[in-house]
């Protein structure tokens, strides 16, 4: 499709977008090749190396169990990306469906969906997530579902407002006059015209999910058994690394979270910039 070709061409010349993409690809490579890149098994404990400082053998030192922090930081990228992308996808899919249905069907359906959206927008999401995660148990799938289910509302709202204007366009009326059903119009006519905001939104949803996941683990309700940046920060915090000035323990995962989120946000901004309707024709 010519539109996609154009998109990549424009994206390449967009600085923000390329910075974001390079950052995200960098972490993706780290996550995928973690077993090759990391010098140690991140789960191998060694009591002799209790909180050892950075050295040539252990670039970021070790934690209280003597596990190599550099290796753990590398493996941490996996969880952040998996949870971020999966939860972002859940949020976007639910938001998209809710927005489409609510905006196109209108009436009572719209009322109900929008009240639910309002509910999810006003509740303190993190508190809610802690409660649910605690109730359901901290498996990876649960964390993804909880984050996804609690962050679709803003997307639903944006999609709904777009649908409200697109459904009035004459091309929709033309399809109606030709016996098109509601499902057909929603998915064939309206959906392709809202995807432009979806991409940007997805990037932002992913970055939010990465942060939320880290926060949940830090607070002890996430999946604490698998290695994640939030978990490392939590370990650092409980071991007193912060007060001891042990920055090689606490800073790398914090910086990684920040940079990865920054990468996705930059991609999101770039996507929105490019997707914004521009004037393609020259008048007069």
């Amino acid at each position: 499709m010519s539109d996609e070709f154009d998109f990549w061409k424009e994206f390449k010349s967009n600085k923000k977008g390329m910075i974001g993409l390079i950052i995200v690809l960098f972490f993706a490579v780290i996550a995928i090749f973690a077993p090759i890149i990391s010098p140690y098994n991140p789960n191998t404990t060694n009591p002799a190396l209790f909180l050892s400082p950075p050295s040539r053998l252990h670039y970021f030192g070790t934690d209280t169990l003597g596990q190599d922090l550099f290796s753990r930081d590398i493996y941490g990228a996996q969880i952040s990306l998996i949870v971020g992308i999966s939860a972002g996808a859940v949020a976007i899919v639910i938001g998209l469906l809710a927005g489409l249905i609510s905006g196109y069907l209108g009436g009572a359906v719209d009322e109900v969906i929008m009240r639910i959206v309002d509910f999810f927008i006003v509740i303190p999401a993190l508190v809610f997530m802690i409660i649910i995660a605690a109730l359901l148990g901290p498996s990876l799938i649960n964390v993804i579902m909880v984050i996804g289910l609690l962050s679709w509302a803003p997307t639903a709202r944006i999609i709904r407002s777009m649908v409200l204007s697109i459904r009035e366009w004459p091309f929709v009326e033309s399809a109606k006059a030709n016996n098109a059903g509601k499902i057909y119009i929603m998915f064939r006519h309206i959906f392709p015209n809202v995807t432009s905001v979806l991409y940007g939104n997805a990037m932002l949803a992913i970055s939010a999910a990465i942060f939320t996941q880290a926060a949940l683990v830090f607070l002890g309700v996430g999946n604490v058994t698998s290695i994640s940046w939030g978990g490392i920060i939590r370990d650092a915090y409980t071991s007193g690394a912060l007060t001891a000035g042990d920055f090689s323990f606490i800073l790398p995962p914090g910086i990684f979270i920040f940079v990865l989120i920054f990468g996705f946000i930059m991609m999101g901004f770039a996507t929105e910039e490019i997707m914004n309707p521009r004037l393609r024709t020259i008048k007069g």
Binding site: W169, P170, F171, S174, A177, N178, N179, P192, N193
Partner: peptide, 19 residues
């Protein structure tokens, strides 16, 4: 009936799905 009735709209920009 809808098979027999058609409309021509005013605005050639919004009456065609851009996608």
């Amino acid at each position: 009936l809808r098979k027999k009735v058609q409309i021509i709209f005013q605005d050639p920009y919004s009456s065609l799905n851009p996608r």
